[in-house]
Simulated assay, not measured.
Amino acid sequence: MRLAYLGTPDFAVPALRALHGAGHEIAAVYCQPPRPAGRGQTERRCPVQCVAEELGLAVRTPERLRGDADVQAAFAELGLDVAVVAAYGQILPRAMLAAPRLGCLNIHASLLPRWRGASPIAAAIRAGDAESGVTIMQMEAGLDTGPMLAAETVPITPATTGAILHDQLATLSAPLILRVLADPPPPVVQPADGVTYAKLLRREDGIIDWTNDAASILRQIRAYDPWPGTQTRLDGTVLKIGDAEIAPVETLQPAGTVLDARLTVACGTDADGRPTALRLLRLQRPGRAMMPADAYQRGQPIAPLTRLG
């Protein structure tokens, strides 16, 4: 098929490589423009642009699609059979949705209709879902509301982090989109029941509230790896938490209290009113690398009865 590919982050790279490798004619790749990044604030190309240029594909990086008639006309002039969208970062206007002969297909990182929206991978882990997956959806004007063409499922285990699930779903997306293009299945309307929305994550979502129960905080730590990460405060200093585990505790202590030298931290009570605690496994001070808890304790130990948060 003659197609356009619209994507920006690492998640969108495997599907782009697969489409190119399968011999589809990729008329243009659309991605977000280079942005200032790092301490020097030098402009950095997104992962999709880097790969597209490596493959010798034409790249377009419009600042905006909506309200720009020239950009929309140039898209229509490509004469596309289909457009494939994966974490592009802009909402496609109606004119672009209607331009390809077969419309636009979206690779969405959830099992729709659960977790429509901006951050479905983190939302699934944070909520304690037993599984996640990738859905190929026919795009329409609503937010992730279009009919579904195919889906693949993966389990979410207690060890699953946002980074792990991201890579699993990105890998799944490549053969799935090829299969849909090769043999398009009949579209299935999304059910009205079970709709949930994943909000756009912000840095403050990673701040730990130690009055939550330990299981909820552990899901927060794993869901928000690598971004926005999770953090607490130690004597006014931001302390990043890289990993933790549920720890036994018998008596209720003030939330955020360090209970022992192994960095067991008191959390809130569970649904049955029982005290809970987490043992920190990896943590990081500003300007330092993330390190195991025992190495951290040998350098700048956190004393029992210290309060975090």
Rank of each mutant, 00 (worst) to 15 (best):
M148W: 12
P113L: 14
A122S: 15
A163V: 01
A118D: 02
L181W: 09
S119N: 15
L200K: 14
V189H: 10
Q138S: 11
P184W: 05
V180H: 01
A122M: 08
D193P: 05
V180Y: 06
L181Q: 04
P113W: 12
G117I: 08
A127N: 12
H108M: 09
M137K: 08
A151G: 09
A141T: 13
A123N: 03
G162T: 04
L149R: 10
L172T: 01
R114G: 12
A150P: 01
P187S: 11
T160M: 08
D167G: 12
R126I: 00
P185R: 07
R116I: 14
L172F: 07
H108V: 09
L149Y: 04
G146V: 11
P186Q: 06
P191G: 05
D144H: 11
A151N: 09
I121A: 02
T171P: 01
V180C: 08
T161P: 02
E131I: 08
V189K: 12
I125S: 06
G142K: 00
H166P: 00
G162V: 03
S173K: 00
T145F: 14
L165D: 03
G142Q: 02
A130R: 08
I107H: 10
G117R: 11
H166A: 02
P175N: 11
I177A: 10
G194D: 02
I125K: 02
A198K: 08
M137S: 06
A124N: 09
L200S: 12
A182W: 05
P120H: 09
G128H: 03
G133D: 06
G194A: 05
P187W: 05
V195C: 15
L178R: 11
T196F: 13
R114S: 15
D193F: 13
D183K: 11
I121W: 01
T196S: 15
G117L: 13
L172A: 12
I177W: 11
P147S: 15
A182Q: 14
L111C: 04
P120V: 10
S110V: 04
T196A: 13
A141C: 02
A124S: 15
G146I: 08
A151C: 12
Q168T: 00
L112W: 04
Q138R: 09
I125A: 07
I136P: 07
S119H: 12
D183Q: 14
I121E: 00
L172K: 10
P187N: 12
L111R: 06
A163W: 02
I121C: 03
P185K: 05
I156N: 11
V195L: 13
M137G: 07
A198D: 08
H166F: 12
L111G: 03
L165C: 01
A118R: 10
P191A: 03
V154H: 14
P175T: 09
S132I: 03
